[in-house]
Design a protein around this nucleic acid. Sequence first.
DNA 1: ATAGAGACCTGTGTGC
DNA 2: TGCACACAGGTCTCTA
Length: 295
Amino acid sequence: MPELPEVETVRRGLAPVLEGALVTRVEQRRPDLRFPFPADFVEKLTGRRVVALRRRAKYLLAELDDGDVLLMHLGMSGSFRVEQRNPAEAVVPDTLYYQRAKDAAHDHVVLHLGDRGRIVYNDPRRFGFMLLVQRTETETHPLLAELGVEPTGNELAADALAGRFAGRVAPLKAVLLDQSVIAGLGNIYVCEALWRAGLSPRRAAGTLVRRGGQPTARLGRLVDAVRAVIADAIAAGGSSLRDYVQADGALGRFQHRFAVYDREGSVCAKPGCDGTIRRIVQSGRSTFFCARCQR
DNA sequence: ATAGAGACCTGTGTGC
DNA sequence: TGCACACAGGTCTCTA
């Protein structure tokens, strides 16, 4: 489901409810998601206060007051929803929380937060997961240690990327999906960034680096495009396709601004280009691009 | 080391 | 209507 802009939108939606909240009760409704839950998951979480909610790549990290971190990933179909108590009543009956039985079928974890209500993790495909790690491990944990630079802020730069692109014959599409190069891009935003940069998803990544190891102008354009598309998508609250919604139930808006993703057959939106958006498959995943203006 | 295929799961849309 | 099949915001593991 979610790429970096969606995860960041989720973080912003959950932070006001979660930060400072006491976890009064935990419902873990099945033994596993993508991974088994730790045996002491409920026990270690119950009674803890959440100090901060951070994001790294597509991971959410809830820092707890005892030095543990609740590490969460939404996989393809994970989402959170916030269910706050009705301020007009002391307690909202449970029946009002679940107006659609279909939703509740994939509610796997419920964190009760006392007077703040509760947050519910729903994930039909169960590719997401929750783990507890020590805060001191967050840099070295196998899932986090190899992550590349964030495409937000100033960290992402052509000079730094050149070393990771040099010599690679893999197509740009594959290298941009590699989380150890840039952390947080997924299928949508890779397609959109390559369109904005005017680069073919099939071009070998190494062709964006000079023999001396210096970045080419094309790599500079790609870096600008990645940063811009991620910033635009975060500003729009992410993209809502099938099941992604923000924590308060609102839809993201960036899907209305896709230039290529899921737009096979439509005319390229680039001024002066009359190409047609095509769909191809690269390493098992759909790529959308304009073969006329993306070279 | 690196590139690609398969695996994990459920839901939805399409064509017959 | 039922059924088979393709496909979906991810990423780990295995194979060449």
